[in-house]
Design a binder for these strands. Structure first.
Length: 306
DNA sequence: CGCGTTTGACCAGCGC
DNA sequence: GCGCTGGTCAAACGCG
């Protein structure tokens, strides 16, 4: 199934927004980005819907618009396919590279300390806790966000308390430091920073393992700034939780934990998930229904004048 | 007023 | 020893 986004006001972003949350709840609202709601394109669509239409022309226009959007949808589908192919190719190269590196470091029997942040974090943590025998578990998660979304929010089902923010040398984006809200009983920390290569990608580095189950209200896991800054998010984004082991096929595919997904399968999973996310959102469906109801009500007059 | 975020100060590791 | 950098602390601040 290829999701037809022709009717979706989200089409300009949803088609390529890979930032989906497999665990999205029905009570979590998915709204179009604020930028889209304020865009000229959306205003124009709204204006068209609210205008007293010349029924025949309007229908013709709508059919044309549908054709245009269908074409656009096909093009976007092709783009996703190409992206998936590229992703798989790059990932394979990366895995090969990492394996090669690991082999070499094993051979030289040197303690491999990565040059990235995790390495320094590990070192620091070991110093903090000399009694620690086992290295804390470090995992890095990449989360695609809406390009306009400037917040550093990674919804992962846990409650976090922000304790610092820094601008690092090699990345103009600030890095935020979080501790698990249940600290000190739960020692987990995370760092969140936008990718230097792709500002729409948030890189979250987790250290340690939670000693407690997920919070019951994942939507509140990270407060968005001092409550008042919530509006800055500009619109909800769906986040992809890559940390959970009980991942859906989608997660497996996107994380690359299995390499056996074809681009078509990946694309299918993405599209299916976007479709279910949208249709599961009562506000979104209600808004669409209302818009169409209004339009159809005027366009299809059951009691034609004389 | 409580709670969580913000942000400047402080600390420690590292390289020169 | 000094400066740079990343990580953490804690007082100030703001919102509900």
């Amino acid at each position: 199934m290829v999701m037809d986004l022709s009717f979706s006001p989200l089409r300009s972003t949803a088609s390529l927004d890979l930032n989906v949350n497999p665990d999205l709840r029905e009570d979590e609202l998915v709204v179009p980005p604020k930028e889209y709601l304020e865009s000229a394109e959306f205003m124009e669509l709204q204006r068209k819907l609210s205008e007293k239409p010349n029924h025949h022309d309007e229908r013709g226009e709508l059919m044309e618009e549908m054709d245009r959007l269908s074409t656009e949808n096909k093009e976007l589908s092709q783009m996703i396919t190409v992206m998936c192919e590229n992703y798989n190719s790059l990932r394979k190269q990366m895995v090969d590279f990492v394996n090669e590196k690991k082999r070499k470091s094993d051979q030289s029997s040197t303690q491999s300390s990565s040059t990235d942040d995790n390495g320094s974090w590990n070192k620091r943590l070991k110093e903090d806790d000399p009694g620690a025998i086992k290295e804390p578990k470090i995992s890095t998660v990449y989360v695609k966000t809406h390009p306009f979304d400037t917040s550093l929010i990674v919804k992962d089902g846990y409650l976090w308390r922000k304790y610092g923010q820094k601008v690092t040398r090699d990345n103009p984006s600030p890095r935020a430091y979080y501790k698990c809200a249940l600290a000190p009983s739960c020692p987990v920390k995370k760092k969140v920073q936008r990718s230097i290569e792709d500002q729409s990608v948030i890189v979250a580095t987790y250290e340690g393992e939670h000693t407690h189950p997920m919070e019951a209200t994942p939507s509140s896991n990270v407060r968005s700034g001092s409550a008042g800054s919530a509006g800055k998010q500009g619109g909800r984004t769906m986040t992809m939780d890559l940390t959970r082991s009980t991942t859906s096929r989608l997660n497996k595919g996107m994380l690359g934990r299995t390499m056996d997904e074809t681009p078509q399968q990946l694309q299918q999973m993405l599209v299916d998930h976007m479709a279910s996310s949208l249709t599961n959102d009562p506000k979104f469906t209600a808004a669409i229904a209302a818009a169409f109801s209004e339009n159809m009500h005027e366009g299809i007059n059951i009691n034609p004048p004389h």
